[in-house]
Design a binder for these strands. Structure first.
Lengths: 339, 339
DNA sequence: CACATCAACAAAAACGTTTTTGGGATTGGG
DNA sequence: CCCAATCCCAAAAACGTTTTTGTTGATGTG
């Protein structure tokens, strides 16, 4: 294999200086259109691929974005976040360097240090589910955007799902189908989603003039087993709910099992809607589970775009903290209430 | 924020030349232990973080490994592969730059090109499920290891799951529990897993002197619905199987549903074992699904370690194509056959 | 016509390391 | 006591770009 072609070779082949080649390809400097085009053609022809290490060294822009997340393995969401981030990065001629902490702050610090050594231009600090975070000290010197995470730092941009809105959307769907007695299978963890979704549940009821009934609300771990037990309790009530809104798909799966045990058919006897749109589950359940999707892909995109804007520091570079809307994904688990 | 401390500052502070600092920190050159230690301490004290762009430029080693995968979003396995790769990379002082093709070869080529521009030292070319691949031309010049993918190139290392072994392990578990009439809910796609697992099924039967009975084998798409239908057919037979070995967990979920519909209780009336160990599903099913785990984390580790060995090109750098064993994860879906 | 302005390019410096080459002190052998 | 070898370190070159500074010829201006 021949020696790699560098900017010098291109310059020689095009009969210009390396300066001119650099300017021609980057769009900078004062170069006549004719020369610029010629250089580009020559570079193309030689299959010239610039050395980003060298260009980053001089220009102080590595075009690498660091992506640090807490856990990438236990959830299938991670992939979509990463995908959104990657697509947006590619559009900006950037590439992602990813690092995982496994919730271990030592590993996290080491990972961040590695990213800094590689002179990433900025960092996406991501969590795999919406939570409040404290920013590691190592991130103080570098542009950072929070993803699925919130902090008290108003100088940092962040994006999280609109938990309350998600719950309202889910409830609106049930209410529009005619349900009035709607149970809520809630979560017990102390995380933003717990508060937000419950708030959304209450707000939706209030909006429709339905009184909040504590006996229709449960709290459990967000897993299938506990969800099943909680659902069974609600369904055992004399005047049982005609619909259940579930904190997430795992709990909803438990609700399916509880319905089955109680001899209820979904959606004829009981409607169910949930949050997560965890496809492997929602599609596999019988009937398919109508669920609110968390906008992972979109959050990934947004974070990168925000970071790019802040790096470019144009006018609109003021930090933003946004809540992203969550769309409803229709399947077959909702119907009108039994009369 | 003060100017970033470079190797010069360290040299000045330690009262030596930059050469000496470089050698002290990298372990190269002829430096007395005393000086080496002193330099290290000073560097530590100044919080010196070497610029990898610069060091890579000169040394031709970026310490970046490219990770290109076909689809990262639709499967939860991706995370574990990435995690294994990352852990191994961190141990080698390397970091991962990841790129996703979404099964689009144009995007893939662009991604690989980006990696090459950043001068990655090597590339892990990964698929999210075991399949035969054709290597993109862009990879011809760079050390590459195949992950969950096989090709006809014997000059490349690769790692895939031992499909046949996995099936044999699953079958051994059922056979040891006493089952003799074991159905196989197979897959229909033309992929290595289809052939390997069926072969393992047959081999295990043969080993135990049980005749292969075609009427106990089905082929279907590997999704819950088709799996349910296939299972129902097997269970409707006059002399129905006492156990089912499923191509994957989704089909197994279908088998659960079929069992339920047929009024059979798992594992009392029917035992089920499967392949994938897709935790969100296997744990959520009632009873828990005994399943063979695909060694994603381990394959990720292995690929990086192999690549590192080939990059170091020590003695043992001859390419290897290996099949990784798949462990059985016990849950509650297997019991003795009904008498 | 003298001078400033400008467009289009080139030469040289710079980025922060690693590697190559050089060189002075110490040691050891004859 | 002289020379070679060895040990420890420093000076300088090199990596492949981008940025800064220069240069040249053309164009306008009073």
């Amino acid at each position: 294999m021949s020696k790699r072609v560098g900017i010098r070779e291109v310059a020689a082949a095009a009969g210009v200086s390396v300066t001119t080649v650099s300017h021609s390809l980057s769009g900078g400097g004062q170069i006549s259109d004719a020369t610029r085009e010629r250089v580009k053609t020559v570079a193309e022809g030689l299959n010239y691929a610039p050395n980003r290490l060298a260009s980053g060294l001089r220009s102080k822009r590595s075009q690498i974005i660091g992506f640090v997340s807490d856990e990438i393995s236990t959830t299938p969401y991670a992939g979509n976040v990463l995908l959104g981030a990657q697509d947006a990065a590619a559009a900006n001629d950037q590439v992602l360097m990813v690092v995982n902490s496994n919730r271990n702050s030592t590993i996290e610090d080491r990972g961040i240090d590695a990213l800094l050594q590689h002179r990433v231009d900025g960092i996406i600090y991501a969590r795999m589910y919406h939570q409040a975070v404290e920013l590691p000290a190592a991130l103080s010197g570098i542009p950072t955007v929070l993803l699925d995470a919130s902090s008290d730092r108003t100088d940092l941009s962040s994006v999280v799902p609109d938990e309350e809105g998600a719950a309202r959307t889910a409830m609106a769907h049930l209410l529009e189908a005619g349900h009035r007695r709607i149970g809520y299978l809630g979560n017990i963890d102390d995380i933003p989603a717990t508060r937000g979704r419950l708030a959304g549940y209450r707000a939706a009821l209030a909006e429709h003039g339905i009184a909040f009934d504590e006996s229709l609300v449960t709290e459990s771990e967000s897993m299938t087993g506990p969800g099943r037990d909680a659902a069974s309790r609600l369904l055992a009530q004399p005047e049982r709910p005609t619909a259940l809104f579930c904190f997430n798909d795992r709990i909803a799966m438990g609700a399916y099992q509880a319905a089955h045990l109680a001899g209820l058919e979904i959606p004829r006897d009981l409607s169910i809607v949930s949050i997560d749109n965890f496809e492997v589950l929602a599609d596999a359940l019988l009937p398919g589970l109508t669920s609110i999707a968390l906008p992972h892909y979109e959050m990934g995109r947004w974070a990168i775009e925000r970071l790019a804007a802040e790096l470019a520091d144009d006018a609109d570079s003021a930090p933003q903290q946004i809540q992203m809307p969550c769309p409803l994904v229709l399947r077959q688990s909702v119907g009108p209430p039994p009369r």
